[in-house]
């Protein structure tokens, strides 16, 4: 249980018990294109025999109906349901509305499939306790993504951006007979970066990526860029920096740090990007 009243957040899994503003004080559909504005959906009441009921407001979008996205309210019987937000979604899908669509696989925070926006912050549904959510819990897909159906975002673009940082070892030296050796401290330099599970909570939570996501690579791809830049076995640092050094690709990062605040694995994309900027500066002088 990591609900907190503290002003100082110490790890990304802490959830504020109450917030002054649940959302920015702007109109609900501010700047939203007509086809993307969210309308009020329907209510799905709990079974008659349920005693411990919790409401979930869930974003719905059905591509087969020529209608806008809507916000449905589901009442979940907590006595019949597991403890995590993902359990609630599965309960709804199996007991109430089988058309509710979402991605999930490992249910233990290692696959990154069930990343979504829970109570205004991006997180994995499988590692967020229902008890930690507000009432009603607000469940949206990852922010600022094209939506395929309900909570399933189209990640094509962010994966293409990941591909652009060429996330593999590049070496011109002939491959050795056995493994490529690394000093222990060089191996330690990868800690905190190689663990990324590509859930894209960070990129989806980055305001700079919201406004310029077509050109700014975003925190997830840049963290991976740093993971290969800092790998002592890689020989392509110069080429990698050439491709990154761009007013939009790299420097559109304004160190807002929503990325570090939201990473469900406790990694630090903001720090990785600062390391890249420092490396570019080093190369210049």
């Amino acid at each position: 249980m990591v609900k907190t009243d503290a002003l100082i957040i110490e790890s990304s899994d802490q959830v504020p018990r109450r917030t002054l503003f649940k959302r920015f004080p702007i109109p609900r559909n501010f700047g939203v294109s007509p086809g993307s504005s969210v309308e009020r959906g329907r209510n799905w009441p709990a079974p008659a025999n349920a005693t411990r009921i919790k409401a979930f407001d869930i974003y719905r979008y059905d591509p087969d109906q020529k209608k806008n996205p809507r916000l449905d309210t589901f009442e979940v019987d907590l006595d019949d349901c597991g403890p995590m937000v993902l359990d609630a979604l599965i309960w709804i899908k199996s007991r109430v509305d089988p058309t509710l669509t979402f991605r999930r696989s490992c249910r233990e925070g290692v696959c990154g499939s069930c990343a979504m926006n829970i109570d205004g912050g991006n997180w994995l549904a499988c590692t967020r306790f229902i008890e930690e959510t507000q009432t009603p819990a607000r469940i949206y897909p990852l922010a600022n993504m094209r939506i395929i159906k309900d909570l399933v975002p189209d990640l094509t673009h962010v994966f293409a951006q990941y591909e652009m940082v060429e996330p593999w070892l590049q070496s011109k030296t002939a491959a050795p007979e056995r493994e490529r050796l690394q000093a222990p401290e060089d191996r330690a330099a990868l800690d905190g970066y190689y663990e990324c599970i590509l859930c894209f909570c960070c990129t989806s939570g980055c305001p700079s990526h919201w406004w310029n996501g077509d050109r700014f690579l975003g925190p997830a791809a840049l963290l991976q860029a740093w993971r290969w830049l800092t790998d002592s076995r890689d020989e392509a640092a110069g080429d990698r920096l050439d491709k990154l050094e761009d007013p939009f690709r790299l420097y559109r990062c304004h160190t807002i740090l929503n990325c570090t605040r939201t990473c469900p694995k406790g990694l630090n994309p903001g720090k990785a990007i600062a390391e890249i900027k420092k490396l570019v500066a080093k190369r210049h002088g």
Binding site: T156, D214, D242, E245, D246, P247, F248, V280, A281, H284
Partner: peptide, 20 residues
């Protein structure tokens, strides 16, 4: 193609001077 969209016009190989 997704990669064509993401790579756009390529890197300007600039931006450091502004940042600095």
């Amino acid at each position: 193609s997704p990669l064509s969209r993401a790579s756009g016009l390529g890197s300007a190989k600039a931006g450091f001077t502004h940042w600095w």
